[in-house]
Amino acid sequence: MSGQFWTVAGVAVLAGATAVGLWTAPGAEPPRPPQSEARVSAAVSDAFDGETREALHTEIRAYLLSNPEIVMEMVGLIEARQQADAQAAEIDMVRNNADALFNDGFSYVGGNPEGDVTIVEFIDYQCGFCKRAHDEVVTLVEQDGNIRYIVKELPILGPMSMTAAQATLSVLENDGPDVYKEFNDALMRFGGRLNDQIIDRLAERSGADVAAMREDMDGREVERQIAEIRTLAGALNISGTPTFVIGDTVVRGYMPLPRMQETVELVRRVGQ
């Protein structure tokens, strides 16, 4: 058979079985190729006897060794498809949990309540990267002027993280969003390890009623709120802080200010 025929047949097989084989984990069931690719593989198998198929496989191997860029091109296409699928899955997760993310009725809402882009940030008050991001988030919200900013307390770094989250949610309920913001800023900008005395002192300096805070922070309402945030984090596959939801986009980990700005503008353009 001619070399051109072998090449065409090889590409047909590569479009299906070879690409699947490259990306099958050891011990895992190979994914089924799309129906059109399955028909190609079946047609190749039916057209040749065993000896001819073996010769075809030898020719394909030789062709790939001589043209390895084809494999790299296929890998790039597979990776791009996987990335697109992952992004689509995250968009679906955000949309399926939109009410809990954007309108839960108890989380702090700052910035411009009527802003055209909403940023939700999951934080822990003992998270070093949350503290690093804090002033950049504040700068972004203040300079942009058209961002709705929501905070979700997600205490994952020990008992004092839980205490700080309970305290801030109690202050938000008892003293309102302005005092909450001062308290949130104070906790995020505090450079040492938190303890009960420091939390109380920062709350008092922020204008909070510390006695009321302490009375309510262990109550069922604060417990319910933190439980709802944890359930939401689980639904979004969030296991670390900070995590940002910007529009439909989930960004896991610290973002410098320029990247935040780029992401906000991208969300705006897509939404237009």
Rank of each mutant, 00 (worst) to 15 (best):
E114R: 11
Q143W: 00
I119E: 06
A88S: 12
N146E: 01
P155Y: 10
G128L: 09
T118Y: 02
N112G: 09
Y108Q: 05
I156M: 03
D124I: 00
N103Y: 06
T58R: 15
C130K: 07
D116G: 13
Y149G: 00
I123M: 13
V117W: 03
K131S: 07
H134C: 01
D144R: 05
A98S: 10
F129G: 03
A133C: 06
N97M: 08
L154E: 02
Y125L: 03
L101A: 09
L157N: 04
V75H: 13
T139P: 00
A98G: 03
I119G: 07
G76Q: 10
M93R: 15
I156H: 08
E121I: 07
L101E: 11
A133T: 01
A62S: 15
N67V: 11
D144G: 02
I60A: 09
L77D: 13
V120P: 02
A62K: 14
Y108C: 07
V117P: 05
L65R: 15
N103H: 11
G111Q: 09
Q83I: 10
V151A: 04
L154A: 07
A86W: 05
E69W: 14
G76A: 13
E136I: 00
V141D: 05
A89H: 08
V137Y: 02
I91G: 04
F106T: 01
D144S: 02
P68E: 11
R95L: 12
Y63D: 13
N67S: 15
D135C: 03
N146I: 00
M72F: 15
E114L: 08
H134K: 03
V138D: 09
T118V: 03
N97F: 05
F102A: 09
C127W: 07
A100T: 02
T58P: 10
L140F: 01
I60Q: 11
E121S: 11
F102T: 03
A62N: 15
V137N: 11
V71R: 12
A80N: 12
E136K: 07
I150R: 06
V71F: 12
A100P: 02
L157D: 01
G115R: 05
V120Y: 05
E114W: 00
G145T: 01
M93K: 14
V141E: 02
A98F: 04
F122P: 03
L101D: 09
A80Y: 06
A84Q: 13
D104M: 03
S66W: 12
D85Q: 15
Y149C: 02
I156A: 08
I78A: 15
M72G: 14
R148I: 02
V141P: 04
R81N: 11
G145D: 06
N96E: 13
G110H: 06
N103L: 06
V75E: 14
D99Q: 12
E114I: 05
I150F: 02
R148H: 01
D116W: 00
V75R: 14
M74V: 08
D92K: 12
D92N: 10
Q126C: 06
Y63A: 14
M74G: 12
S66M: 14
V141A: 03
T118D: 05
L65N: 14
Q82I: 11
N96R: 14
Q82N: 12
L101T: 10
G76H: 10
I147Y: 05
E79H: 13
I91A: 09
F102K: 10
S107Q: 10
E114H: 11
R95T: 08
Y108H: 11
H134M: 04
R95E: 12
Q143T: 07
V117L: 04
A88Y: 02
D116F: 00
Y63V: 07
L77C: 04
T58I: 11
L77E: 15
